[in-house]
Design a protein around this nucleic acid. Structure first.
Lengths: 325, 325
DNA sequence: TCAAAAGTGTTATCCTTACACCCATGT
DNA sequence: ACATGGGTGTAAGGATAACACTTTTGA
């Protein structure tokens, strides 16, 4: 009782956003954290004594939790805000009073391989961000969000700034949609108290009204939805300047499958021929002469990514020739 | 003696790369860490009990160490490799055996304001990366680097891969120079043992041969040169898609001064008229009608950044119309 | 009058966008 | 034959790159 408190300590939590594309949907690997009702990302404590690098530690615990071996991995961001930190709870050796810092990683998988683990599941990321999918035009989910944002903006004295931010982030009043601003949108919703995490972090238990809850997407464990938003932002940006989309494809694929994968990631519809022309000019893929007959109509030629280019010359990503509706 | 060791603990170190442009040179704020011969970045321990966010903590210790108030701030990367971690030594409350994680931040200042602090100095970043400045053509420093890299590549069995990496990173054999790959270049030099930090981290005390030492630039404290390389990479990329260059400019500036600032950051020469045309089309700046007569020749019109655009529409950065020599 | 830096015109080329149409297969 | 998706041609418009020249000041 009268023993002095030890200096507050720090625990580093690692979280991984593992992405795959399955049948034209962008999927993310989730787990059910012990003792939680919510879905979360695979995560684990970083062992300062044992682990040599964050990346190795991330690979290790993802394999351990999901029996899945990661390929492409890159660091996203380190989150440390007080009040939004992870209740790592009884996970690992974390002392109960420790401040939790969370380092997010992005990993790409060539397919949503069965993980053979009971508590891990692939989920479409639209489950967590229903308003991010513009492939079939402006998503329905934006209407209740727009209304709620306008109510939020209207209350404050800084209404004009709030409206301006909402307009830019959510393409209100005819502003153009920017598919990369995933994190900005989530953070705006959080600030406006329109996602369940914001209410929870304030220590309240109110539930969002049902139509809004459906529009803003499913709550996640801890700050995992913020990490997921960071990952989607990063990935959507990155496909344009690095050929990372091929990390999500099998060895051989059709051009349509490639386009569907890009569309699934970017959440926007692309113009078929212009997409192909850009591909051709970039000289990124090579026809295999073989055909895929299982596509429904005319058989499609199979292509492969010319991976050898990576060590031969600087190689950029894909342009996104939008298909306007 | 027989008391069990406490679990290895973690200390979070924050480091800031504070950038300004002064008379056409990109400058970085450095300090002399207590007890070290080397220059370093402003840094300090993160206090898990006191600091609410990393960013606030970064602002606080930079102000404290240099009396300088930061404007634009953004997180860069979190470094945690064992063996490259900072010897935080007796700085702050760090336990001697703790693993040090280092979170790097980038900050931009509108001018290299005198910091009124004894141990902080602005240094041109070319001091640490002499080979990064292509404004006057291919820098001399590349010749000894190229020779050393070829010696390094030649020894291993994976010579072809090493040569390919060096070619891409350092524009050997006529490959194009990519100004953004600053980190990649520094890491390659580190891996090849061609920077003093690599030798130091192996526990050796050998000094690099003098001509190579001059070519690869000055050693920094801890892993600070890696953090600086990350910052330069990030900033060079970012000026192209966000109007961050204006964070480095005073309120009113001439178009030539703006071009010199972009050239200083990017390290490449730009084509005057095409640069201006791109500016004009982007509608980012506005003439003030006033003139600056101190430019030497014909007086130049002063312009200002239309900062109000930021809340009105998505606003991109500047294109870099290269001037071929 | 000349050096120094500011500021402008113009063209060829390439890339992007936006049209709509033909092809090969399974049912 | 027709539905389904695969695959192609082409022209307009805009952006970029490349060329050199005129203007306004101070020394």
């Amino acid at each position: 009782m009268n023993r002095p408190l030890p200096p507050p300590s720090v625990v580093i939590g690692l979280s991984a956003v593992v992405v795959a594309v399955q049948e034209g949907e962008a999927m993310v690997l989730t787990v059910r954290p012990p003792g939680s009702e919510l879905e979360g990302l695979p995560f684990g404590p970083f062992d300062p004594g044992g682990h040599r690098t964050f990346e190795l530690a991330t690979r290790a615990f993802v394999t351990e939790q999901t029996r899945f071996n990661l390929g492409f991995v890159e660091q996203l961001y380190t989150f440390g805000d007080k009040g939004r930190d992870a209740p790592l709870a009884d996970m690992g050796a974390a002392a109960p009073a420790a401040r939790v810092i969370s380092v997010g990683y992005l990993a790409l998988a060539p397919a949503a391989i069965d993980t053979h683990a009971r508590d891990s599941q692939w989920r479409p990321w639209s489950r967590y961000f229903p308003y991010e999918d513009w492939r079939d035009g402006r998503p329905e989910a934006l209407s209740p969000i727009e209304a709620a944002l306008r109510r939020w903006a209207g209350r404050g004295s800084d209404a004009p700034q709030r409206i301006a931010r909402a307009r830019l982030a959510f393409a209100l009043d005819g502003a153009p949609w920017n598919e990369e601003r995933v994190l900005e949108r989530y953070e705006l919703l959080y600030e406006a108290g329109l996602v369940q995490e914001a209410i929870r972090d304030r220590g309240e238990t109110t539930l969002l009204p049902e139509n809004l809850a459906a529009a803003v997407g499913a709550e996640m464990f801890s700050d995992h939805r913020r990490i997921l938003a960071t990952a989607v932002s990063r990935l959507r940006g990155k496909i344009k300047y690095r050929p990372v989309i091929f990390e999500l494809m099998p060895e051989a694929f059709t051009l349509s499958a490639l386009q569907r994968a890009v569309e699934a990631v970017a959440g926007v519809p692309l113009h078929k021929q212009n997409f192909r022309r850009a591909l051709e000019r970039a000289d990124l893929v090579e026809g295999l002469g073989r055909m895929d007959a299982d596509t429904g109509g005319r058989p499609a030629e199979l292509f492969r990514f010319r991976r050898e280019l990576l060590s031969a010359r600087p190689v950029s990503g894909l342009s996104l020739p939008l298909l306007r509706e």
